[in-house]
Each structure stands twice: as C-alpha cells, then as structure tokens.
Design a protein around this nucleic acid. Structure first.
Length: 234
DNA sequence: ACGAGGATGCTCT
DNA sequence: GAGCATCCTCGTG
C-alpha cells in the first residue's frame, strides 16, 4: 500500500482537489480491493458559503464553534468527512488544511478499476455503466460507511494511491454542482470528456436555465392573456 | 433523449 | 419548519 501521506492534504482544498484527479481511491473490504480512478472533485473552503463549517469561526474572537457534524472539518488533514445528504445518500470528503483552518475536498466521481462485481452488487445493478459517476453512487459502490467518519485515510483500509501515469485528459474547471450558495465559485475539477464524470450541471448554469425557462413561461402567459383580452379565443 | 417529482432524515445559512 | 454538496423512476417526445 502506497497511500498519499498526510502532507499531501495539508494545504488548501483548492490545490488538493485538482491534484487528486487521476489518483486511485481504494477501499479494502473483506480483504478485497474496490478501487476507482478519481475523475471529478470539488473544493470547499473556510470562507465559502457552501462549506458546512463556513460560519463556525467567530470573527471577533477567532474561536471555532464546533458542532457534532462539522468538528472533523477543523481537525487534522487526511481524515474522512462523511455526511448524509437528502436523508438518503452519504457523501465522502477528505479533510484538507492544517488543523484549525477548515476545508475539504468532495470526491464526486470515479472510473471503476477493481472489484467491479462487488461494486455492482453493492449498487444493486448488473451494469458497469453509471457505477461510480456521482458522489452518492461511489460511496455505495466502494462500501464506504458512515462509521468511517473521522478515520485516517493515510492508513487504510480506505486510502488514496497516487496517480502512476498520465491520464490523457485535460483538467476542466467549473462551478460546483447542486448548490444554492456559492454557486459561481469555480471550485469543481474534472477530466474533460471522461465518460465517468457525473451528469450533474454546474450550479450557475442550472440557475440561469431555470430563470430563462421561468421567463419563457411568464411571456407565454402574458401572450395568452393578451389574446384573451382581444377576444381571439380561449 | 430529457424533465419533473418523490423519497427521506439530519442540521440549522 | 425549511433546506439540503442526490439518485431513481416514471412520464412525454
């Protein structure tokens, strides 16, 4: 096992997130490896409104108000931060920065490499496609459990192996996916054109689409009202 | 192909 | 009580 060491994670999530692309996330379950190449990540920073610990630091005293959920985010780097979203799916993050600073990287998608049949079984599917192309899916596939919250991922059984070859993909950057705050910050990194990148739409684009659709609806309604007003039909 | 809607439980913006 | 760092299924083309 040649796991990425703590020093790799002891810097800004903005550096760690793109640096993780091409590395391999490994989980050893019952002596068997399940592994995938990291193809999509997102950075979450201390002063970022989408970061779970963004308001944990009191600006006047500088003291950190730790809650049960966010405490690991301000602990040592290279530790798992796992949390439940939408009451159903667990998402896997790696804590970054030196203790007390706050920050993490969300692993959003993997290219499945090892233990495919175990991953398919864990996901309840007989297809290899769409096995790990989303943050909730890859947690299911690798069998990452909420009890692993706070564990050191430089030791295993859950760890990251460094990339051993050029990936052959350009690194793309966009806003993050599925957010309502901090939607324009360019903190998402991915292998451009890789088939296992998640199908999500960057938040700023998604919001713009919703608004233009809404505007179209309003215009259609106005036109209808106008026609009715002139008595041309239903 | 896409879009809408529902499931579901924890945290607190 | 609202709001989620999501995913799946079921409608329409």
């Amino acid at each position: 096992m040649r796991a990425l060491p703590q020093a790799f994670f002891e810097r800004s999530a903005l550096e760690v997130a793109p640096a993780l692309l091409g590395a391999t996330l490994v989980h050893e379950v019952n002596g068997m490896r399940r592994a995938g190449r990291i193809v999509e990540t997102e950075a979450y920073l201390p002063d970022d409104p989408a970061f779970h610990g963004w308001n944990a630091v009191d600006p006047t005293s500088g003291m950190i108000r730790l809650t049960g959920r966010t405490a690991p985010l301000f602990g040592p780097p290279g530790v798992a931060y796992i949390y439940l979203v939408y009451g159903m799916y667990w998402l896997f993050n790696i804590v970054t920065e030196r203790p007390g600073t706050g920050g993490c990287v969300l692993i959003r998608a993997l290219e499945p490499l090892e233990g495919l049949s175990a991953m398919m079984e864990a996901r309840g599917t007989s297809r290899v496609r769409a096995l790990c192309n989303g943050p909730g899916k890859l947690v299911q596939a690798l069998g990452i459990r909420p009890e692993q919250q706070g564990t050191d991922i430089t030791l295993g059984p859950l760890f990251v192996e460094p990339a051993d070859a050029k990936a052959g993909y350009e690194v793309g950057c966009s806003s993050r996916i599925g957010l309502t705050r901090g939607i324009a910050l360019p903190y998402r990194f991915y292998f451009d054109g890789h088939p296992d990148v998640s199908p999500g739409i960057p938040s700023d684009i998604a919001v713009a689409r919703r608004q233009s659709k809404l505007a179209r609806g309003v215009r259609a309604l106005d036109a209808q009202k106008h026609r009715r007003g002139r008595g041309d039909g239903v």
